[in-house]
Design a protein around this nucleic acid. Structure first.
Lengths: 243, 243
DNA sequence: TTAAGTATACTTGTATACAAGTATTATAAC
DNA sequence: GTTATAATACTTGTATACAAGTATACTTAA
């Protein structure tokens, strides 16, 4: 078995992280990128030796990935589920669901601080694009949406976001890295989309909000799916020649 | 410190469970019931000796309870957050959110099997009431709603439910036990509410669905809150007696 | 009495050891 | 060759040991 020592998850995001977190993030990336294929059976001992850590942090990682539904624990070993097209659509179902809920709350509160914060993040996104830093851009993109969600101070909506976030993060990382290489023009449009977001929140025009939201997701969803499929092909390309 | 050896979580639900699960469920009940008060600081070592297990299953429990937002890990020890009125309202926000989503899907699919399954569960609920088995009733109540959610085969909506479920379970257990003793008549109304649910799904009348849903939750929400507050008082009263 | 520094008793994170159970493989009987 | 049984090499769950870091308390100096 050929083992690539290259890490998929940004190393700088794990500087102060525990071994458990490192294994969790890296293993998640390997599963979602397709480096570890769906259906594969993984065991704690095997992973522990692969990552050169003990079973303790690996157990922690497997518990988390199981709660994210990308692995399924069985009698002996866990089965890798990974992501399907259907599941990616479902993720965006939930994002639209909670962001719609959030917007309904936002129109009833003062959003001045939020607008300022979002503008700042958008500036950061522009810089990330300028320097072609895909990982930083992904980070800011996620923070943008998280900031909106946090604004309504709703612990269980935030909980849903937190449960969704890691898988989203992996997906977006993989997608953005590819787009920076092959579809650099996409990012101009993404920035415009986010400007629309801010405008919709500022004007508190409900219809504009809904429109911006769906426009963003409908657009992004297709893109992310395409990119993800490409990524799947890419990673499988090495060993797969049929079709 | 006075320690009650009485378990809050139904022992029969943990017959084949691991020590980790046992600690998780019991600790969750102790926090939500108020037996362990909000603001209390808990440490792995202390809990391990309290539950007479090693730190391994305790660590597992704390990770889960932290993801449920009822404890907050800090530098040294974790702080008990527990549930506030606001958080209980938020739980029901999310329940309404996802069940509304689920209903929108249900009107587009065949619900014959679902109706049959729900009718069966409702029968079980009636038996539980007849024999005044609060724990069994709570279980069937949760299963009723979970069955509806599972019917649309949506992994991320189900994930939200699964994240919400344990805390819901604890809340409902505490609420139902109290109501069986003090508000036995409530259950007639609960059964009628669930009959309405089934009818709304069967007829696929969207307005009836929404109405049934809100009627059920608005009603239950107030009740659960009241009962929860009473439970808080109750458990604190007992503790004071023991001092 | 007060302030600073050190000793001690905690804490978590990780590695390792052990027990109990399960799947697989090898062996023996037919 | 086929089937039943035993040996084995795995698996997870739990306990324990150890390392590194942090808060607390005590001691000592001024």
């Amino acid at each position: 078995m050929t083992e690539s020592t290259e890490l998929l998850y940004p190393a700088k995001w794990l500087l102060k992280a525990s071994a458990g977190d490192r294994v969790t993030c890296e293993l998640r990336m390997q599963i979602i990128s397709g480096k570890i294929e769906s259906g594969a059976i993984i065991s704690e001992n095997k992973l522990a030796s692969d990552f050169a850590v003990s079973r303790s942090p690996v157990r922690e990682a497997l518990k988390i990935l199981a709660s994210e539904n990308i692995i399924r624990p069985e009698r002996m070993g866990a089965v890798v589920i990974g992501l399907t097209d259907k599941k990616i659509e479902e993720i965006y179902d939930v994002r639209i669901l909670i962001e719609t809920f959030v917007y309904e709350r936002l129109v009833r509160i003062n959003v001045n601080e939020l607008i300022k914060e979002l503008s700042k993040i958008l500036e950061m996104m522009r810089i990330s694009i300028k320097y072609q830093d895909a990982d930083e851009f992904s980070y800011q993109d996620l923070i943008f949406h998280e900031t909106i969600i946090r604004a309504i101070d709703h612990s269980y909506i935030l909980m849903i976001w937190n449960n969704l976030k890691p898988v989203m993060e992996s997906l977006i990382l993989l997608s953005m890295r590819k787009r920076f290489k092959e579809n650099y023009d996409d990012f101009t449009r993404i920035v415009i989309n986010h400007e629309l977001y801010i405008e919709a929140i500022k004007t508190k025009d409900r219809n504009l909000m809904i429109k911006a939201l769906h426009q963003n997701f409908d657009d992004v969803q297709g893109k992310v799916e395409d990119m993800w499929k490409s990524q799947q092909m890419l990673s499988k390309g090495v060993e797969q020649e049929n079709d």
